[in-house]
Design a protein around this nucleic acid. Structure first.
Lengths: 358, 358
DNA sequence: CTGAAAGCGCTTACAG
DNA sequence: CTGAAAGCGCTTACAG
């Protein structure tokens, strides 16, 4: 059948295909309306300087033919795709899922599309994705979460478009603008809360990338002349409930005298509670637990979780807006650091230690 | 400064911009290697018929100049963007987050990019997104989840690219291929399990879009001559923990004699457990709870949840592969329904009723 | 095995 | 206020 159609339509290259798919082009609209392509372009783009009568004729032709502009051709001509790339480690964690949706909201407001790449905590995968993105298929790139890209971050010279960093906790590179949380302070808030309740002997559950919040947490204890030793910091094998269970079990086994735990992200906490339960500890009476992130589920735990709330949606919005601004003014790729402030949310999972350690 | 550069480079349109951004084009490579653009194109595309020596010269020029092909120009010439659009209601639910990642995996294997649109259970938003996608910016579209697009589904004639449906539960339209779960059977499995344990008086918590699994659930009771009345079906105000709490509270208040609850998706269950707790019911002794989806968190609940497992990642993979196949063979947009089979996973949240209702 | 031409469907200056 | 030309950077037939 293909051959039949082809023979019937004629031999112009690809003409048969156009005929089959029936693509209406700007030229068709122009002919129908009795004007040039340029005028159609002006009408479509809403540029001034087209007579009312002409515009009406063009618009009529557009709806009659069902014309819809070819965005690829437009991109080639303008050099912009109106598409932004977003790197996140995963969408399975609600922290990043919220970021994705917030970014998408801002992009939609500005008429941009979202190209999503999840890196799955895999630097090599991230690097591959990045290579695939070069070559003008996006106008800019937002990298949210430094868990795996930290050593694969491209040089500004190697990348053809503006890049903005977001939710960055490890060293903040100065070659790109970054919008992130004051993680040192968020850790400090968690630590100061526990100190204020009288806890002296505590454990920290974190992933290695969360150095800043751990540092802040320790600073709160240092303020009172107390030390949180390295042996009290337990790394989570995976960033989820199972990782929380493993790390909390390890922490309780390593030092049964701890009276509180800082779970450096809420996603760990159901596992932490389970580990406490299996160790015969009730929360908060025998063990206080403070989280970080304030995930929506956290208030529904038993007991409701005391945690540090970080404005992740606002952060994502600001980062996206910064990126769009950079894109608009053609690549001023350097910029200052924007730090958003966390807030402690006290609920039921923390209280004074049962028998204050000396 | 712009003006200075412009004056310096000359008056060729946009030449100053190219100079500033320093874009290397295929023509530059060709000149450097002493061949035509066409030969460069052949080398880049890995097409046969280029002499080894020539290819080596071209490749050397490519790396020396740091050439990277302009995908937009390629797309305009080929008519393919190697980008696929994906509609999901949200990425905040792990069910859809898993689908997104599975789709992305398949796309990556085939060298395609992912354009993500979340509809947020908002049909109007979905319609807008769809309109924005037309015009060749994607090669195909995967719509996962029918919660809001059901009445906004485009006519095949109105859409310029292949569409495949996935995770579809309401009426299955015959105008597009669909890869989904046998939801009627999954509901039946949940119902049969409760019946087998001896439950006779039960409630269902579901969203209105989940008619099929509710229907299957009822069929299991009908098999034994029992009826699950409409008054026992409680709709969830929101698709999350809070919705589960509200619906379960309503169900327990409406009929305190129920001995089991079918939560039509696992995301509800923490709220259901909480409602049971507040009603003074222990699970499974005073109330059995069976879920649907088998979210990873579900096995960590107290008690671990009995639920119906659906192969969502496999479903997403198959749907994506079907879409890519359709794209490859230029738009055979009709196709059969692929139904994947669910499986019951029995854990601790279900048991025989404490005092069997007559 | 390699090269000159035409085309993809737009937009961007520029002349009437 | 409208039109003819050139260009965006590729690929696709086709001739040597």
């Amino acid at each position: 059948m293909t051959d039949v159609v082809r023979a019937w339509v004629g031999s112009a290259p690809l003409a048969w295909l156009r005929e089959v798919v029936d693509v209406v082009t700007m030229k068709d609209v122009a002919e129908r309306a009795g004007v040039t392509k340029q005028t159609v372009s002006n009408v479509v783009a809403g540029r001034p300087g087209v007579g009312a009568a002409t515009a009406a004729r063009v618009n009529a032709a557009i709806t009659e033919l069902g014309y819809t502009p070819n965005l690829v051709a437009r991109s080639l001509a303008t050099g912009r795709t109106r598409t932004v790339g977003l790197f996140v480690p995963t969408v399975g964690a609600t922290f990043y899922a919220d970021i994705v949706e917030a970014v998408e909201d801002v992009l939609e407001e500005h008429g941009h599309h979202l190209l999503l790449c999840t890196t799955r905590f895999d630097g090599e995968r991230a690097r591959r994705h990045l290579a695939g993105l070069t070559s003008r298929s996006v106008d800019g790139l937002l990298i949210a979460g430094d868990r795996d890209l930290t050593c694969h971050l491209p040089e500004p010279a190697d990348v053809r478009f503006p890049v903005v960093l977001c939710a960055w906790e490890t060293e903040v590179p100065d070659r790109f603008p970054v919008v992130t949380i004051d993680f040192e302070h968020s850790g400090y808030l968690a630590g100061r809360h526990l100190r204020g309740l009288g806890h002296r002997r505590v454990a920290v559950l974190a992933s290695p990338a969360q150095a800043l919040r751990v540092q802040g947490f320790r600073r709160a204890f240092a303020d009172d002349g107390l030390t949180v030793p390295d042996t009290a910091v337990h790394f989570t094998p995976q960033p989820d409930v199972a990782g929380g269970f493993a790390a909390a079990s390890a922490a309780l086994a390593a030092d049964p005298r701890i009276t509180a735990v800082f779970a450096a992200y809420d996603a760990l906490v159901p596992g932490v509670l389970q580990a406490a339960h299996e160790a015969g500890r009730s929360v908060p009476h025998d063990l206080s637990v403070v989280g970080h992130d304030d995930n929506p589920e956290s208030r529904l735990l038993h007991p409701p979780l005391t945690t540090v709330s970080v404005p992740r949606r606002r952060m994502a919005r600001q980062a996206t807006e910064a990126l769009l601004r950079t894109i608009a003014q053609q690549g001023t790729t350097a910029g200052p650091v924007q730090l958003l402030q966390p807030e402690l949310v006290v609920r039921g999972s923390t209280g004074p230690p049962a028998q204050p350690a000396r």
